[in-house]
Design a protein around this nucleic acid. Sequence first.
RNA 1: GCGCUUGUAGCUCAGUAGGAUAGAGCACCAGAUUCCUAAUCUGGGGGUCGCAGGUUCGAUUCCUGCCAAGCGCGCCA
Length: 549
Amino acid sequence: MLHNLKKNLFEILVKIDKNIMINIDDIEVETLFDKRGDFTTNSALKFSKIYNSNPKQLANLIIENLKINDFEKVEIAGPGFINFTLKDETFNSQLINNKIEFKNTDKVNIEFVSANPTGPLHLAHGRGAVVGDILSNLFEYFGHKVTREYYVNNTGNQINEFLSSILYSISNKNNLSLNENQFYKGDYINDIANYCYENFKSLFNKELSPSDRINIVNFAIENLVNQTIQTLGSAGINFDEISYETNIMEKEYLPLILEKLNQSELIYKGQLNAPKDYTGTQKDNDLTIFKSTLFNDDEDRALTKNDGSPTYFANDIAYHEDKYQRGYNKLINIWGADHLGYLKRLSSAITSLHPEIDFSVVFCQIVNLKRDNKIQKLSKREGNIFELKNLINEIGVDNFRYFMSYRKNDTHMDLDIDLIKKENKENPIYYIQYSYARTQSVLDKTNKIIETQLLVTSELKNLYKKLLEWENVIKSAYQKKEVHLIAHYLESLSSYFHTLWSSSKNNPKAKFLDKDNNISSDLHKLLCNYQNILKDGLKILGIKPKLQM
RNA sequence: GCGCUUGUAGCUCAGUAGGAUAGAGCACCAGAUUCCUAAUCUGGGGGUCGCAGGUUCGAUUCCUGCCAAGCGCGCCA
């Protein structure tokens, strides 16, 4: 219906002046839920200038050309809105056709979580995980072939420090006097240390060789990665591809990348300000530097370190080159807010190499944990972290997924754990599920589907109109990559259902079932439609509807 | 100091690629259950959309400045 109206308006506007180029997607039709009508468009306001007219004149012109069979009333309101009121008889099973016409079968690579493999997942990773998974579901809903990808940064200083921390723990516990430092703290380090010691006991009889050390740390990393995969898997989040930084390095993309960037005159040899803990002399070696200031970055960025080895940035470019080589033109990364400053350099490098790549990043802001009405102070450095698996265990998968995705991804969020654990109306997910259970109970009790006249009440109309919005909402969530819109819509939709349900308290004729438990075919289709949309929406969120509560 | 994100009701947050009277939940007050599930519904109070300018027919939305909170500001990852 909404789409038809849009199309109708579009055709009229084209007919009015064939020389004016407008796009059908520029036409906005919104749903109204009050006395003004059922739908509204601001087209006359929006286009009056390019039609060399004034809003009210253009509105009149549009109305003159409108096929008005379906409408009870069409009127100009305010500065030039056109408000449409549908005839009552239009509200029937024909009204809703919520098949999504738009399909796009392109391959998409969505990379998310990608936590450093030096510790267990904690609260902050949870948001990225849920948002990434739901976004993947959403892209699949629109036909894309989605690869959910996880990246393991298993090189660099952090890995040395991780190993050192493990050996420190082993040394302490077993009186080995290994000369190691403690960088990471926490029970999990001791657990992994024990595990490593049990597995490699014989190695500790003599001094560890470099290859021994590599074996131990790889074992520890593998252990953590497996834990991570398991934790996320328990929340219904599964990956199609796990990429290791070391494997990407073996493919030796960097020389080709540097050559290509050099040809585009985007790199140079030179010096940058010395890093904080730098001990050598700056003139040891020239660095290879990417001119990211050309792309509005604050500074140019180093691709090689003083010792000639690649920086994290360089390896990350290679990683994205690898994604491209695997056939992905559409890359989406989910990052924490602490990487905001990293976006410009990476996106400019990627698009310099391959302008055809559609690269975008969805940022997830900080999540605070609130308990007993107080924000909990958590610090990873002190080993005082709230592990994600504990959170999921405490609140359950449905709550976890819902509450991590019902706030806009780039706003700061307080996760009130006491509120989530309440199983009542303060918790929106029960509200949504309850409406589904109500529809199911009607369907379960239905005797026969019969053809009768539909009683068109304002509550019924509102539910129909809300169902019509689904197509716009889901498309908007997809285009804007904003998954919270889905949860908000489902809550709102449920509300219209509960209102309709309750209206039968005062008006028994508004019930779905008659005395003989028969239902009109229109209402039956309405209920099925309602269930389908709720099911689709919940499925994208990764939540199963409850048939009974 | 610079950059990014955020600032909307007592609280938690929607809305804003310029549009009509700025919304929801919670909390507070008053009601609804012989009736398909009351885990629900109805009504009510509550707002200078951080502050100040600017752009125009119109700004919570765009621009500038300021204030506040968070994050980032390595050849770390």
